[in-house]
């Protein structure tokens, strides 16, 4: 009885639309006309006939493949530095955390366009050293990197979680290791990292899911085109174009289901791999 509001919400707001989108993925549907059943045609076209789909898959794997490890290394590194008994820690922690609050916003996307544009501050800085410049957001080779860097810049959320975990590690372990003559690197490698693995695992899962679903950055940085030359066409942006530019809701629904399955497979693989490297302190 007390669960009823929650249950109704689940059925009507979450489960209903999810099931409808599963149905729509087997239809052709442009909103204005009733959906028409076409079986597996959308899926067949996706995998066999649609080079844009594969372009989007390539861009997305590039994005996930670089930004997830970089975010983890960056956030862990900064967390370790901050954990060394710094004064004003809460201030630094807040400063580093701010980007992850605003990094997904439209305003930051616009800012990124300016920073990496042909007359942005990155180029002004490089010109100071006499380095030839170009527009980083409008060159196919560099544009995906501006998206990766924007995502890495929002490492704060992962960092805060790492910082909390670092504080849980008993100092007695470090003291014992120091007495035995372990160097700072050895202490990090043999004590910090193993005890952090559950939290690394947690952050890894979050970042993978988050990165597969990244949208705003590429939408704003490329003006919604995924350009230049499809170099920033993230999967979700292509899905958006099919759904809301071409009004191809059936096709977009099929794309959404493929994304769901891919994320599920990756998450499943990570959970499977966890047994080999995540240490829960139970021997």
């Amino acid at each position: 009885m007390f669960l009823l509001p929650w249950f109704l919400g689940l059925v009507f707001i979450t489960l209903g639309p999810v099931l409808v989108s599963l149905y729509l993925s087997f239809t052709r549907y442009n909103i204005l006309k009733p959906p028409r059943w076409i079986g597996l045609d959308n899926y067949v076209e996706l995998f066999i006939w649609d080079p844009q789909f594969w372009a989007a898959v390539r861009v997305t794997f590039f994005f996930v493949g670089w930004s997830v490890p970089l975010v983890l290394v960056m956030s862990l590194g900064i967390a370790v530095l901050l954990n060394r008994g710094l004064s004003f820690l809460p201030v630094y922690r807040s400063i580093f955390y701010i980007p992850s609050l605003i990094g997904g916003s439209v305003a930051i996307g616009l800012l990124w366009r300016e920073v990496f544009g042909s007359s942005g501050i990155v180029n002004q800085f490089l010109q100071g050293f006499g380095i030839a410049t170009r527009s980083w957001v409008a060159t196919p080779e560099t544009a995906p990197w501006t998206l990766v860097s924007l995502n890495v810049w929002t490492f704060g959320a992962a960092m805060v979680i790492f910082l909390a975990a670092l504080r849980q590690i008993p100092t007695s372990l470090y003291e014992a290791a120091s007495i035995d003559g372990a160097s700072a690197w050895t202490r990090f490698r043999r004590i910090t990292l193993p005890l952090l693995t559950p939290v690394i695992f947690f952050n890894l899962i979050l970042q993978v899911i988050h990165s597969f679903q990244a949208f705003t950055q590429s939408f704003i940085v490329s003006n919604g085109t995924g350009g230049p030359a499809e170099s920033t066409l993230l999967y979700t942006l292509y899905l958006y174009q099919r759904a809301f530019v071409q009004l191809d809701m059936g096709y977009a629904s099929a794309m959404a289901w493929v994304l769901l399955i891919v994320i599920a497979v990756f998450t499943g693989l990570l959970f499977w791999s966890a047994r080999f490297w995540v240490y829960y302190g139970d021997g």
Binding site: S118, S135, A138, T139, G227, P228, A229
Partner: peptide
């Protein structure tokens, strides 16, 4: 240039 063309809407 190509990057100017792609950058400026």
């Amino acid at each position: 240039t190509a990057d100017q063309m792609a950058e400026i809407p």
